[in-house]
């Protein structure tokens, strides 16, 4: 007997090599594709959130331009307007914009040295709506008229249609890119798995000619490639989740987040990646093994 080998202690070894150098390339390719697909998914979610944010901000507020009438000073008129608007159902808050702030808004157009004191600068009242039941522009106008205030209500409706259209395009574009990347990833995972399977043709032939049933051989490869793809999917998804987390942390309230507002909950979206990658690889391996066995039979 071999000194190192005791047949009584022998246990069957795995029928496929535990480690195969060719598997490294397969895992790398799948991991990169999963990473890209996950990044696109996170980008899509961020685009959706950004789009919802843009429309939400516009629909959740209104600006009222107040013109003083008679001897009433603009500041007093603006104060009365804010008071009247605050009582309208669906308004969360109404406050006057200080004169300095109103002038600052005009500064880019009129310059710093303009004789602003001589100009009839209108006073502005900003209105924050109740998010659940926002007041309509008509209700605000009605309240102002009832209080005898000459004012114009701008509920941003002119912008909202354009913004909503842009937001819709952003959402669909993100979804389209994600679907393209995800299907390309699935196709490449399938091809890479088939290519790796071809390298095991000799093993498949020996098992087949030794009387192994097709299902026995198919399961062997299906399990192996599903495991490899799951591992690769885990790497890819983790990489994308780290990038998403960094974007979230680096952005905070500023920087990246207003453009691509990734939320912590979005990171959960990459969780199914290892399972999906494993599923695609398992199906590809199954089909490839069945094809090879079909050729042999």
């Amino acid at each position: 007997m071999s000194e190192l080998f005791d047949p009584k202690r022998w246990r069957p070894a795995p029928l496929l090599p535990r480690r195969d150098p060719r598997d490294g390339a397969l895992v790398f390719v799948i991991a990169v594709l999963c990473f890209l697909a996950c990044l696109t998914a996170l980008g899509g979610l961020a685009a959706d959130r950004a789009a919802r944010g843009w429309t939400g901000q516009l629909t959740g507020s209104a600006t009222v331009v107040v013109r003083a009438m008679g001897a009433e000073s603009p500041d007093i008129a603006a104060g009365r307007a804010a008071e009247a608007l605050a009582g309208v159902p669906g308004v969360a808050e109404a406050r006057t914009l200080e004169k300095e702030k109103a002038e600052a808004l005009l500064e880019p157009w009129l310059g710093r040295d303009a004789l602003l004191d001589d100009l009839p600068i209108p006073r502005l009242v900003t209105v924050e709506m109740d998010a659940k039941q926002p007041a309509t522009a008509a209700a605000l106008t009605q309240a102002l008229k009832a209080a005898g205030i000459d004012a114009t209500v701008d509920d941003h409706s002119l912008w909202i249609a354009d913004i909503e259209r842009a937001a819709g395009i952003a959402r669909w574009a993100a979804l389209g890119v994600f679907l393209l990347i995800a299907s390309a990833a699935a196709a490449v995972i399938g091809f890479a798995t088939r290519a790796a399977m071809a390298a095991h043709r000799e093993t498949i032939e020996v098992l087949h000619l030794s009387g192994a049933k097709a299902d026995f051989v198919v399961r062997l490869f299906q399990t192996r490639f599903a495991k490899a793809a799951a591992l690769a999917g885990l790497f890819g998804a983790s990489g994308a989740a780290i990038i998403g987390a960094l974007a979230r942390l680096a952005g905070g309230g500023q920087g990246l987040t207003p453009v691509a507002p990734v939320a912590w909950i979005d990171l959960v979206a990459v969780a199914p990646t290892p399972f999906l990658a494993a599923l695609v690889a398992a199906v590809a391996a199954r089909l490839a093994a069945q094809g090879l066995i079909g050729e042999l039979a």
């Binding site: 080998f5 047949p7 022998w10 246990r11 069957p12 070894a13 029928l15 496929l16 090599p17 535990r18 000799e202 093993t203 032939e205 020996v206 098992l207 000619l209 030794s210 009387g211 192994a212 026995f216």
Partner: peptide, 24 residues
């Protein structure tokens, strides 16, 4: 020969019995 290079001599010989469902 068509031996499986990643299996030991013992595992190669045991292969047909294993495929047939025998217990080690």
């Amino acid at each position: 020969f068509r031996l499986l290079d990643h299996l030991t001599a013992f595992d190669n010989v045991a292969l047909p019995l294993r495929i047939a469902g025998g217990k080690p």
